[in-house]
Design a protein around this nucleic acid. Sequence first.
DNA 1: TAAAGTAGGCACATTGAGGTAACCTGCCAC
DNA 2: GTGGCAGGTTACCTCAATGTGCCTACTTTA
Lengths: 134, 134
Amino acid sequence: MTATPMNEPIMDLVAAKERGFTLDDCPVRDVLDKLSGKWATLLLFELHIGPKRFGVLRRSVPDISQRMLTQTLRTLERDGFISRTVKPTKPPSVEYALTDMGASFMPLIAEIVAWADQNHEQIRLMRRTFDAVE
Amino acid sequence: MTATPMNEPIMDLVAAKERGFTLDDCPVRDVLDKLSGKWATLLLFELHIGPKRFGVLRRSVPDISQRMLTQTLRTLERDGFISRTVKPTKPPSVEYALTDMGASFMPLIAEIVAWADQNHEQIRLMRRTFDAVE
DNA sequence: TAAAGTAGGCACATTGAGGTAACCTGCCAC
DNA sequence: GTGGCAGGTTACCTCAATGTGCCTACTTTA
């Protein structure tokens, strides 16, 4: 709840800082931007269950607008997290799927979910306490 | 590079979805918002090395404005990631430090950094390829 | 002929994160 | 006094992310 006597620092992070990983064109930003968008993780989430078509995705994430669905899928495709395959059905359909790289990213999301699950009660408690004092 | 035959889904994620973790007041959002801000991770990064005073933090992250430094520190404190301690020195000084909860969050950041380190070349390759085709 | 379902595109408004710059409150030294 | 440092706060502005609504082009079904 208060200051910690500091468990020893994670050396990877110390090393990362020394390599300049805190700069603006930083590779980590590329990844963080995926996590930060409102929809990207939800879509990765859906595709992690299995490949899905455009319309199915839209119904799976009912709040998303068509525009944001298209746009988010594009940037995820652009960065190689998902693939887009047009199938020559009668009305051509488009299937989206995780790539191997995208799939390798999901364990990180799973860990974040797990951490959030373990800590969100304390976070909300701290928040209420902080707000109460003004 | 193309569609993956889908390694088996991570059951924690499937379970999370069934518990409604994709909703708007979702606990995961609370955590993702920390990662998404421009400065929060950098400040956690600095405090992970050790406790630091306001002015030291400002010099450690030279691009940050006083306003954003104060603001980001406040929200991190509000959510219990860091602690704020006023010390009765001649001009009173303020020391910021990771809390235990904040420290427990750092391994996740370390993993994201490691993943970004391994994959950013491919991401940028995919991006260039995608942009070339138009 | 009309409706409804495929997968989008385009134009505009909103909104919130972030930046800039100035001011403030103590306390110290000159 | 005047100036500086510490740690802020406040007002104002910008810009990118996101939302809303309407449009296309094609095909199947009623």
